[in-house]
């Protein structure tokens, strides 16, 4: 008995040492920063004070939150963030679903297609954003030049630098948030492979018997898709939405590199950067970061309360 106790003790000690490096790194670079962020959000800190001792003074206040909530941009930024996050998530899932349905089944070059479709996701973000900016550029970009040369457009469209575009759709005048739409389209292009991989894996695990049985019962291909494939994909689609929503709302690089948050694309992560490193107001930046955190928690709460319950 004593022997067993000491063995267990030994095992726990060993586990402690085996996990200590991971634990320390994650504590120091993930958990601690989040707590430190809360501390900073409650202090009037500017970037100039970084080398002083005032960082550790106990002079907490809500002044940063007053500034953040009082900013006339605050509500528009939340709306832009919502539009971008929901739009980008849904578009990437729809494109991923479409691509998965196309590639599912046998045809020559299938493996090649599958490999190619993942490329946008694994290519470095700087390379793909600069390439798209170049393609879409109103002065130098190939897309605008092609469209103008072929008569498709009368003048180039500044896809990433114009806030609104007036559209005339059969007499109806519509104002399209141009740069924001471009950024969402980019988001769909870059992240559809993620949905594609998961949906393809799920499609391949749907038993053939289901389709055979439905065929025998006289269901047409579209009916089979609607009545078998879609319900079988429901779980993976909603999980994908959860992941994409979280990662898109957290996303900073893509918009920063495409538009720097100009022309109506200022989302909450860009605002954090603007406060902290544009206005050198670290406290306000941290306060917005806390707001982002709160939104994430709220989303998770609603998601698990509602959608998961709904699905059971």
């Amino acid at each position: 008995m004593v022997n067993r106790q000491s063995l267990l003790h030994q095992e726990a000690r060993l586990a402690f040492w085996m996990l200590a490096p991971t634990f320390i790194v994650v504590m120091a670079f993930v958990v601690f920063p989040v707590i430190w962020n809360l501390w900073l959000s409650l202090k009037p800190v500017s970037l100039g004070a970084l080398r002083g001792t005032s960082l550790f003074e106990f002079n907490l206040s809500l002044v940063n939150f007053h500034k953040v909530f009082g900013d006339p941009d605050f509500v528009p930024i939340l709306l832009t963030t919502l539009f971008y996050t929901v739009g980008g998530s849904i578009l990437s899932i729809i494109l991923g679903l479409t691509a998965a349905l196309l590639v599912h089944g046998e045809f020559p070059g299938r493996g090649l297609c599958r490999g190619l479709f993942i490329a946008p996701y694994i290519a470095p973000v700087v390379a793909v954003t600069f390439t798209w900016s170049f393609i879409l550029d109103p002065q130098l970009g190939v897309l605008n030049w092609l469209a103008v040369n072929t008569g498709l457009l009368t003048q180039p469209i500044p896809f990433l630098s114009q806030r609104w575009m007036e559209l005339d759709i059969t007499g109806m005048r519509v104002r399209l948030p141009l740069a924001l739409t471009s950024v969402i389209l980019f988001e769909g292009w870059r992240y559809f492979p993620f949905a594609f991989l998961f949906i393809l894996a799920r499609l391949q695990s749907i038993p053939d018997e289901l389709y055979h049985a439905a065929s025998v019962d006289g269901a047409s291909p579209f009916q089979r898709f609607y009545n078998i494939t879609l319900p079988q994909l429901a779980t993976v689609l909603s999980t994908l939405f959860l992941f994409r929503f979280i990662w898109t709302i957290n996303k900073f690089d893509d918009i920063f590199l495409l538009t720097r948050g100009h022309a109506g694309t200022k989302v909450i992560t860009i605002k954090i950067y603007d406060y902290a490193f544009g206005e050198f107001n670290i406290g306000a930046g941290s306060a917005v970061a806390m707001v982002l955190f709160a939104i994430l928690l709220l989303f998770l709460f609603i998601y698990f309360r509602w959608i998961v319950k709904e699905m059971r």
């Binding site: 430190w36 930046g285 982002l292």
Partner: peptide, 16 residues
Amino acid sequence: IYMFPAIVLVIPLYVV
């Protein structure tokens, strides 16, 4: 850690 946005981690790490 999936939940933690990089932009939230960058400010405190930058400061420290």
